[in-house]
Design a binder for these strands. Structure first.
Length: 572
RNA sequence: CGGGGUGUGGCUCAGCAUGGUAGAGUACACGGUUCGGGACCGUGAGGUCGCGAGUUCGAAUCUCGCCACCCCGACCA
């Protein structure tokens, strides 16, 4: 491509509405343009990157026997009624001219299961793996960060169909490995972590996180074994035993005027947050309950739901808190509380500080069981760095930030049962097909790559997903010999299969450097004053400030080889 | 959905407190000078000041309502 012909409207300044670096650079580099909240158009450069990522995903899915299909964006309501998912809140809904109801596809389990149940009837037709790379529509409560979380985005979604658990295990591992290869080829450092399955259900599942400082998720991994989990999901080893009760000081109420938060209470009483207990009033399936955790910890709602066996748990509003504790928010405590009290495993000590259930007062020297009834103990707090590893017991968890770019699930028979997708075994007996689903955010991977690879001048695309592999800069567009040679080199590189951008614009060289750095051309060649002496300059975007000299003689071959070398660094 | 913020040529912003009919930089067009890291001079074109009411002789500016977008939280299949 010649830059003079290429539509890539770069921006000098940071767009006002873009906060995240990937969002800023995608817009500044002319990759995407915003249309509405969470909805973007891809311009030529953006689409090239998008398609390069898609192609890598496609190749890896095909490699384990995946077959590409393409399902519709419009999904009839009746199909989602079969699994009850027509009530999912993020659905975009619309009607056709006959008032028939449709949704815009947010994921395609029902659609693909419908295809399979109408075509598959025997164990001999399994296994089957179908996938698509398609636009998904979700009316997210809060789109954010450009391509990181959009309402319209591109997702790879794969679906496996098997007749037995072993086969599901096999295809699940195939996907697990393929995802690893995909992110590696895209030049991304990733981590597969155990995760909460959420409402999609199923048993085993893994999230694939791209590790970057700006990630919105916290992941924990063991320094000793290979355990890794989303911090939300990571389990915590229960304390060995309950400390014996007896001989402890009588609890008493002290005045703590204006101290609502743990920090304020800790400062006022001159104690550490570790000896303060947070009493968090929640509503579980309509009934108030209390969850007790250490002052410096976070209550983990998914864990809490499992411990108490409720369908749904949410934080109580201020009014409920007042009704239950007869005190304003900030002074709730377990002593004298007349609702079920669940206590985090960690709180096995004595002499805690808790709220006194009256304004501006806390109670000190409190011990669970001795001073209040414990409905049940449980793991209800969110794990943090420093906690012991649940798997090996000896390692300590370390934290990192990540962006969730993929999530794979063993679904089991959840959807096949709801939709009667059955197969007959060798004996002729009918069973629901065993399924798995595998999602990978293509557009989110694109943004994540920028989050992971950028500097103050712009994007540093890994060469495998860069919009161009090599960029040629003509230093002086008015120099006939430079222009002619650049054109020759450009044609030679194209003939060698190199994806090359020739900057033949009548611009000062500074403009060209800035644009190339901004859009992230990985290998940059300058045809300048050295041409007369038989040399060109070569710079790598990923290496800062270094230029090397290469010979004009065989330059195209030299560059083509460099492209291969750079790719090999990622593919090894 | 709760909290905060922002809407003024394509882009980034000033002007608003104390109303008098819109300005800079950049980008764009033309001319000239430049030419190895976003050049300089000159000329020119480009704006229903988010939308709608209201107050006023007069509203970008004051009042009320609405909308859009961004950030934090809730949520996130």
């Amino acid at each position: 491509m010649r830059a003079s012909q290429l539509f890539f409207p770069t921006l000098r300044e940071v767009p006002r509405d873009a906060e995240l670096i990937s969002h800023q650079l995608l817009i500044r580099g002319g990759f995407v343009r915003n249309v509405a909240a969470g909805i973007y158009s891809y311009l030529p450069l953006g689409w090239k990157v998008h398609e390069k990522i898609s192609q890598i995903v496609r190749e890896e899915a095909n490699a384990f026997g995946g077959q590409e299909v393409h399902m519709p964006v419009l999904v009839p309501k009746e199909l989602l009624d079969e699994t009850g998912r027509s009530k999912v809140p993020v659905l975009f809904a619309l009607k056709d001219k006959n008032q028939r109801e449709f949704f815009l596809g947010f994921t395609h389990e029902e659609v693909v299961t419908d295809i399979v149940r109408n075509t598959i009837s025997s164990w001999k037709q399994l296994p089957l793996y179908l996938y698509q790379i398609q636009t998904k529509e979700r009316d997210e409560p809060r789109p954010r960060g450009g391509l990181i979380r959009g309402r319209e985005f591109t997702m790879y979604d794969g679906y496996s169909f098997d007749s037995n658990e072993e086969a599901l295990e096999t295809i699940y591992r195939e996907n697990y490995r393929a995802y690893g290869r995909i992110f590696k080829r895209c030049g991304l450092e990733y981590l597969a972590v155990e995760a909460d399955p959420g409402a999609i259900g199923g048993s085993e599942n893994h999230e694939f996180m791209v590790l970057t400082e700006s990630g919105e998720d916290t992941v924990l991994r063991c320094g000793n074994c290979d355990y890794a989990a989303n911090a939300e999901r990571a389990e915590i080893i229960a304390s060995a035993e309950v400390v014996a009760i007896g001989g402890k000081a009588e609890s008493s109420v002290v005045s703590t005027p204006g101290a609502h938060t743990v920090d304020e209470v800790a400062a006022f009483l001159k104690v550490s947050a570790e000896v303060i207990i947070k009493t968090i009033i929640c509503v579980a399936d309509g009934k108030p309950i209390a969850g007790l955790i250490r002052g410096d910890r976070e209550l983990n709602l998914p864990k809490f739901v499992r411990v108490i066996g409720a369908k749904e748990v949410e934080l109580a509003d201020a009014e409920t808190v007042k009704k239950v504790t007869s005190a304003p928010v900030g002074f709730a405590g377990p002593v004298g509380l007349n609702i079920p009290i669940y206590v985090d495993n960690e709180l096995r000590g004595s002499a805690y500080v808790v709220g006194a259930n009256e304004a501006d007062a806390h109670r000190i020297d409190v011990q669970p069981i001795a001073d209040f009834a414990v409905t049940a103990w449980g793991d209800i707090r969110t794990a943090v760095a420093g906690d012991a590893c649940i798997r090996c017991g000896s390692g300590v968890l370390q934290d990192a930030r990540g962006i969730e770019v993929g999530h794979i699930f063993k679904l089991g028979t959840k959807y096949s049962k709801d939709m009667s997708a059955l197969f007959q075994d060798e004996q002729g007996a009918k069973h629901p097909i065993i399924m798995g689903c595998y999602g990978l955010g293509v557009s989110r991977t694109m943004a994540s790559a920028i989050e992971a690879h950028h500097d103050e001048n712009g994007i540093r695309w890994p060469i495998t997903i860069a919009p161009f592999e090599v960029g040629i800069i003509v230093a002086n567009a008015k120099d006939e010999s430079q222009r002619e040679y650049a054109d020759t080199l450009y044609r030679s590189l194209k003939a060698l299969g190199v994806d090359v951008l020739l900057d033949d614009r009548d611009e000062r060289i500074g403009v060209k450097f800035k644009d190339f750095d901004l859009i992230g051309v990985p290998i940059q060649v300058v045809i300048g004053k050295g041409l007369a002496g038989g040399t060109l300059e070569l710079a790598l975007r990923r290496v800062k400030g270094e230029k090397e000299s290469i010979a004009v003689e065989g330059a195209a071959e030299t560059l083509a080889k460099r492209v291969c070398d750079e790719k090999a660094l990622l593919d090894s």
